[in-house]
């Protein structure tokens, strides 16, 4: 007994500390939601980690076939989106009974050659005329636009990247629909220039730029990037806008090619007008 008391005098602080700290942790874990969820999750994590590693190993082997089938599925799903369809109904009494028909379909492809550091960058993809790729079709991926098909072989196609000094793509500001054309000045692979936005447009840094849909190249609403800086050249009535691309082309790998099913019709009509 005496020894016990002596022990407590000697180590009383430590013993009290350990006991009370355990009590505190018990209280923290049981009566605080956030700490409780972290505690529960991390205790799962330790056992989960083992399963996850084993699973990752197994997954690794069939990764490529999975990603191929996912890319195809994505292309099919994108064709179901509203902006890929053409509204046939003229009078729209309600949103429900509008009739649409397919306007765009998408072909999934892999980038097999790419560059971002030249003045005129081209991309090669592993889809060609055999797969239904047509010249002057748009190419984009899940993060934004990539370029336009400029040359089609039977199995491969060449894409003029948006980072090409001859590249011209129509793009619009999502918030107010003012549109202009996108060019690249050949230096920064994350930055393109949007010009022809009139002086009276209200711009905000961070405004989303998306494709306009005013051509047969891209459907409307595909992300391009956000406004980084904008200014008026002296004497000009149009803004010059630096756009930060949402897409990092140096990392793009899986892309989709736009196939506009109504393109012939639109082009024929537009040509007739321009002949006049």
């Amino acid at each position: 007994m005496r020894n016990l008391i002596y022990l407590f005098v000697q180590f009383g602080g430590l013993i009290t500390f350990v006991v009370l700290e355990i009590l505190c942790m018990y209280l923290v874990i049981n009566f605080n939601k956030k700490q409780n969820s972290i505690f529960v999750n991390s205790s799962n994590t330790i056992s989960g980690l083992l399963y996850e590693r084993a699973d990752q190993l197994a997954e690794f082997w069939d990764m490529s076939s999975v990603s191929d089938s996912l890319a195809e599925e994505n292309a099919r799903l994108r064709a179901e989106l509203r902006n890929a369809r053409f509204v046939e109904t003229i009078l729209q009494d309600s949103a429900r009974n509008e009739k649409t028909s397919q306007r765009y379909t998408f072909i999934s492809a892999d980038i097999i050659n790419n560059s971002v550091n030249k003045h005129s960058n081209n991309i090669t993809i592993n889809r060609g005329a055999n797969h239904g790729v047509k010249i002057r079709a748009g190419v984009f991926d899940d993060r934004g636009i990539v370029g336009i098909i400029r040359n089609v072989g039977s199995r491969f196609s060449s894409v003029m990247s948006i980072l090409h000094k001859e590249s011209r793509i129509t793009a619009a500001i999502r918030r107010n629909n003012y549109f202009g054309s996108l060019t690249w000045n050949g230096s920064n692979p994350r930055m393109v220039t949007l010009s022809d936005i009139p002086k009276h447009a209200q711009l905000i840094k961070g405004d989303t730029i998306q494709t306009s849909g005013y051509s047969t190249i891209f459907p409307a609403g595909i992300m391009v990037g956000v406004i980084d800086t904008f200014w008026l050249e002296p004497g000009s009535n149009f803004y010059t806008i630096d756009v930060l691309l949402s897409n990092d082309l140096s990392k793009s790998k899986y892309v989709y090619i736009v196939n506009d099913l109504m393109r012939e019709e639109i082009n024929t009509i537009e040509e007739e007008v321009s002949d006049e």
């Binding site: 009370l20 700290e21 505190c24 209280l27 923290v28 605080n32």
Partner: peptide
Amino acid sequence: PGVHASASVFMAW
């Protein structure tokens, strides 16, 4: 519950 207490127990120790 316990968050301040654990820190203050530690500091006291």
